[in-house]
Design a protein around this nucleic acid. Structure first.
Lengths: 218, 218
DNA sequence: CCCGCAATTATTCAAGTGTATAATAACTTC
DNA sequence: GAAGTTATTATACACTTGAATAATTGCGGG
């Protein structure tokens, strides 16, 4: 009688794990903020997109505020995880090259990602908890960049003072951020690979090491 | 009897010129978006801050949307006007120096200005009219930068192809934007003048002309 | 001086907001 | 396979939102 594959489905809903539901709600929130701004991310829209009713949001998050915070943290972790994995494990110079290159291509460069970031910015400036997350992400990214720069300089036989290294990291980070921003805000203004090319040239000029992304072949 | 300086003020309101009211409403809107995000800029709050009642908004703007567009245009014009005036009229190199320097100091670098920009971004990505304004401002800024770079290179005896010049302008613009962004988003992370210093070093490295802001002192 | 117009206020409206509470039903456990 | 837990839905509430309309009132022209 009961074929377990075919649900007769007079069931009106299914119970899912807490993790599954939390993630679904967070992803729906991110989608909506990127698409319509914080304003468009209402509890009802979020619930609809996560295929639940709005009451469930407050079952998993004590307020919408908390959901937004969780969504922000998730977004930032995703971004950093994606870039951190991109360096590979060749020479220091090639690691730096790969890192810059990956930071300036999809999926990092993406209108939705920039829209998301912008949508959160106001909350970041007011909510201390979100400020902490922001600061954390920024430092993580910049420190990683600084490590790569120092290693690359060392590899090419140049020493650099700690304070100078930090300044270089700030500058390179700024180029990357600026290009990332413009690529996301004006998606049609740049051809594919153009941002990455400009980024490599600029970072190369700033640290004094020509960076070229060779097409790895054979 | 009636001292014209002292208003006895049983008058319940005063009539002002259309220009005065429009500007007051626009400034109130910008204030609120910077402070609380687009979300916080409600017709009632805007009206309160402009010292009028909410109905007046629709007397001057056919919708809130239109008011926000006008506010965006006003903000962008203010930003470009402030930077364009900063180059001065010395040598080409010093003009470039001044431009970069001014772009990375208050009042251009300012948490409110960044918050404002971010608050508008979502609308920019959806509303064609706001997109046009955005594109226009970006191009204006970048073209100005390109002109300064080409002149500076020419002055120091180097020629540069048109396409190369454009790439340099994009890169320098990105450094400036990135530093502007970070200075506004993390106001306490940088000491006074640090952003400008890093900006001058980076732009100098990218275009190949050391830029130093000498303290002008007869 | 007062008349009329338009700038401004006062009030109302329907739709949408986040939150709270009560009712249901899917899964677990014995 | 019945009872109990609790994830989930359903409904309600108080409040805010942008917009629309009606009622004032300042002020310039005759």
């Amino acid at each position: 009688m009961d074929d377990p594959d075919v649900q007769d489905d007079n069931r009106k809903f299914t119970r899912e794990s807490a993790e599954f539901r939390r993630e679904a709600l967070i992803l729906a929130t991110l989608d909506l903020i990127a698409e319509m701004g914080v304003r468009g991310a209402t509890v009802r829209e979020i619930a609809a997109r996560a295929n639940v009713t709005q009451g469930l949001i407050r079952h998993y998050f004590s307020s919408k505020e908390e959901l937004v915070q969780a969504a922000y943290e998730h977004h930032m972790n995703t971004l950093t995880d994606q870039t951190a994995a991109s360096s590979g494990k060749g020479s220091a110079v090639s690691q730096l090259t790969n890192f810059v290159d990956a930071s300036l291509r999809p999926p990092i460069v993406d209108p939705s990602a920039v829209a998301l970031w912008a949508g959160f910015l106001n909350k970041v400036q007011h909510d201390p908890k979100m400020q902490r997350i922001h600061q954390q992400t920024y430092n993580y990214f910049r420190d990683h960049l600084e490590t790569l720069i120092v290693a690359a300089l060392h590899e090419t036989g140049r020493a650099v003072a700690a304070s100078a290294a930090k300044q270089l990291a700030i500058a390179c980070n700024a180029v990357i951020d600026g290009l990332w921003l413009e690529g996301g805000a004006l998606p049609d203004a740049f051809s594919e690979g153009q941002l990455a090319q400009i980024g490599l040239d600029s970072v190369g000029a700033i640290v004094g090491i020509p960076l070229t992304k060779e097409v790895e072949q054979s």
